[in-house]
Design a protein around this nucleic acid. Structure first.
Lengths: 341, 341
DNA sequence: AATTTTTGTGAATACGTATGCATTTATGAA
DNA sequence: TTCATAAATGCATACGTATTCACAAAAATT
């Protein structure tokens, strides 16, 4: 038999330690100096009674909850859990919790309420949403915000992302220098800054080689596996199909590979495929996708640091960080060496 | 120019509406009866001032936060985001928020603290963890708990899962009746009830057909893509390789398919493969995996209902629900019709 | 009309912590 | 030793809500 841990408060601790409640509070928050001996006595009682400070009372006084919100657009997009994993690890390291909102299916009401009620100390955006209700609510309520893997025009907000333009330039150069003649691109919505920047990089890279991205080698659709798959099929059924398809990200590349497989085409013999992001699945044999790897771990670290500094130290200077990406060559392109200049 | 929404409290509303603070509280919580006219007047002022009740103060009084915790083992396992998506939707429908802990990399300290401090009203377990620190802490602190997609021996906890045994029996019957002669199984850790139950189902199903699962056709490893992949390769290199591999779940099946592809084997000509779960990716062309689909949406609904009832209505009777699964036949097995008896 | 019951409302209090202010104790300089 | 200064601690209060108790008014019952 056991009893639920009875509700203790700092007064109980204070009484037993022979100090005032204020001292207990000071020991816990470390805000003010407490004599070594007194501190140890209090800590011993806390240990002995198994006392846990009341998070709500603390939050009410400080207006800080220790919780950070994360807004994602589609949690089932495989890159999202990878990002969430890193964010959660970093936040845990700061003694913070993570609330997740999936705006795709939930809508934004939940986040907006949380912002207005300030039940979170700060917000991380993975989803686009420059003009989203959540972003506007955050701005209006003066809530610290950081964006990971997205660029927005507001210069007052910390933004941590990979260098998509440079990465895409490298991909274009890699494909051109490997002798690909008819390079195509399949991309997703351009209101996602990552995809827009990568497309710009591919176009720019081709132009630098005196090439271009002709209309019939370019296709774009909203974000849906089957749509990308069908675009790939349609593209390869053209009279003169491309011999390389650069995709806006790995997930698009997977869908394209599915389409090619459905058409009975061989990769890389018939056509090369490249992705972008370097998510785990890209290394699986069935995909084996050449990709541009983003350092998600470092990006998550930077994002959390920026946000936490903004929360704890009233740091107002936004941080704009671009991380270098790394070309990972795999079987979806012939195994040719490539020296990045 | 704008100002941040100034901090209002229920006293401000009360004053402006010409009532007492208690009445404002009653209007908001709906706990007690308020005259129609008074209520409307208060609501009008709330609207006018754009007042938001303070969630922390409310939480302190009621000892309820409106937040539910979800414990997952590995958020990057593709079935996890699918489950989280459904859970989040249902929780949002109940006006609740979701905190996620990924015990694989974060450890359990975060959850345990949250439990002890009661910053969450209830907890949903996706991860195993019958003997986990979090589960024990939840029990010790009398926190409402529900398990989805996992079975634990504690009969005092609501458990919602698919009928793994029946589903696996069906798979075995399907493979046998389709004429597969050498049926193998590749599985993950048996301390995951889902995998254990499915293995039992396969064995039982084979036995019912007068067959068995010989040692050389059975392999198991911890949960890691490469391990499953290598197990598949090793199994197919045997003198008399199997002509069908039943996998503990879809993700294992994906790894097996990767191994088969690496070996240059054809599916389903050389060997059939089945998964279990029916996650989205199983329908992608590169996998095209025959699987046993679990009704995750319904399962999530049942889980959240059980937990919320337990929280709000002090419902103590645990709910044990098993959902029927559905065989989805795809290209990883020859497209033979199957009549489930 | 007189009584009982119900309904609506206000005053006061408690939840558990952090912190400004006042006070005591320790420390160091003269 | 004496005084000035710094460090350590206690007292009291505020954070914003929910809720008990008391009471008045209205409704229902006799």
């Amino acid at each position: 038999m056991h009893t639920y841990s009875q509700k203790l408060n700092s007064n109980d601790v204070a009484r037993r330690a022979g100090v005032s409640q204020a001292t207990v509070s000071r020991v816990l928050s470390g805000s003010s100096s407490v004599r070594e001996e007194t501190r140890n006595r209090v800590l011993a009682v806390i240990e002995e009674l198994n006392y846990q400070p009341n998070a709500f009372a603390r939050a009410m006084k400080t207006s800080l909850s220790g919780t950070v919100g994360v807004v994602v657009s589609r949690i089932t997009n495989p890159i999202v859990p990878e990002i969430l994993l890193h964010l959660a690890n970093k936040l845990t390291g700061h003694g913070r919790q993570m609330v997740v909102w999936n705006t795709d299916t939930e809508g934004e009401d939940g986040v907006v309420n949380a912002i207005r009620q300030r039940v979170i100390d700060g917000l991380i955006f993975t989803a686009a949403g420059e003009q989203s209700a959540a972003m506007q609510a955050a701005r209006k309520n003066g809530m610290p915000v950081a964006c990971i893997n997205r660029h927005i025009t507001d210069p007052g907000i910390s933004q941590i992302a990979g260098n998509n333009l440079e990465g895409a330039l490298t991909i274009a150069d890699y494909l051109v220098s490997a002798g690909r003649k008819r390079i195509a691109m399949i991309n997703g919505p351009l209101d996602r800054s990552t995809l827009a920047e990568r497309e710009a990089g591919i176009r720019q890279g081709l132009a630098a080689a005196g090439r271009e991205l002709p209309e019939q080698y370019y296709a774009r659709s909203e974000f849906a596996h089957d749509k990308f798959r069908d675009l790939a099929i349609a593209m390869m059924r053209q009279p003169s199909p491309p011999d390389a398809i650069a995709c806006g990200n790995d997930v698009i590349a997977f869908a394209v590979l599915c389409g090619l497989r459905a058409e009975g085409l061989d990769v890389p013999d018939d056509v090369w495929v490249t992705g972008f992001d370097g998510i785990e699945m890209a290394g699986w044999d069935v995909f084996d996708t050449t990709t541009m790897k983003q350092p998600l771990d470092a990006m998550a670290t930077a994002t959390v640091e920026a946000l936490v500094d903004s929360i704890e130290n009233n740091e107002t200077e936004p941080r704009m960080v671009r991380f270098a990406t790394e070309l990972v060559i795999r079987g979806s392109t012939a195994n040719t060496p490539y020296r990045n200049c």
